[in-house]
Amino acid sequence: MSSDDQGQPRKRLSREQRRRQLLDVGWQLVREEGTEALSLGRLAEQAGVTKPVVYDHFETRSGLLAALYQDYDARQSHMLERALARCDATLASRAGVIAEAYVDCVMSEGREMPGVSAALAGSPELEAIKRGYEQPFLDKCRAALGGFAPSGAISAAGMRLLVGAADALSQAAAAGELEAGQAKEELRAAIVAMVERQ
């Protein structure tokens, strides 16, 4: 068993705990130094582990960036599920919950996500991850909103409109161009309008 700087025994982390630690340190590095500074060696140094430990979890820099993207998407999906489970069964309430969950998630990691996405741009990992996470998100929104559409369903174009508006307004809030509350209200109104046109 290893020890810390004060000579106290250090508890061994499980594989999942170590991965969580590495992801948290990765987010911190991106936040403080930018995506360009993120390398597997730098992550190992900041996390206080050897390089083989980091390579065992992520293999490549793209693998690390992909894991950060997955981590972000999983949080976004979890926030949305929890919020939808607690909201009233009205269009305004569900649209508001989707808007709030999306903006809040982007605000929590939003300044870092554009850098992570840009660093992964064009990589097969990112495209696979985006496809893997986007459809379940769209399905959740479609299920939450479809019953309020005059046609009884939300079209693919309507869902694309929702995601485009959500991304644009959330990123504007994360960049300080809009207040978070304003972004949420504009997104809620856009979702309601989109559903009512279906």
Rank of each mutant, 00 (worst) to 15 (best):
A74C: 02
A66T: 12
D73S: 08
M79K: 00
L68K: 04
S77N: 00
A66N: 15
A89I: 02
A85N: 10
E81A: 01
A74E: 15
A85Q: 15
A83W: 00
S62G: 13
H78Q: 10
L80V: 02
A92R: 07
R61A: 14
R82S: 04
D73C: 07
Y69E: 15
D71C: 15
C87E: 08
R75P: 01
E81S: 01
A83E: 03
Y72D: 14
L64T: 09
L65S: 13
R86C: 07
R86A: 11
D73N: 07
L84W: 02
H78W: 03
Y69W: 15
A74V: 06
H78A: 08
D71N: 12
L80K: 03
D73G: 15
S62Y: 11
R86Q: 11
A66H: 14
A83H: 00
A74N: 11
D73E: 10
L91N: 09
C87W: 04
C87A: 11
A66K: 14
Y69F: 15
A74P: 09
A66C: 13
S62L: 14
T60N: 13
Y69Q: 12
L68N: 11
L84P: 09
Q76D: 03
L91E: 12
A85C: 11
Q70R: 06
R61I: 07
A85G: 04
T90F: 03
A92E: 12
M79A: 04
L64H: 13
A89Y: 06
A89M: 04
R75N: 10
Y69G: 08
Q70A: 13
R75I: 03
A83M: 00
E81M: 02
Q76W: 01
S62I: 14
A74I: 08
L91D: 08
S77W: 06
Y69M: 10
R61C: 10
L65E: 15
L80Y: 01
E81V: 00
A89V: 12
S93N: 01
C87K: 08
Y69A: 10
T90N: 06
L84A: 01
T90V: 02
R82Y: 03
Y69S: 11
Y72T: 02
Q70I: 06
Q70M: 05
Q76G: 05
A66E: 11
A85L: 09
R61P: 10
D71Y: 03
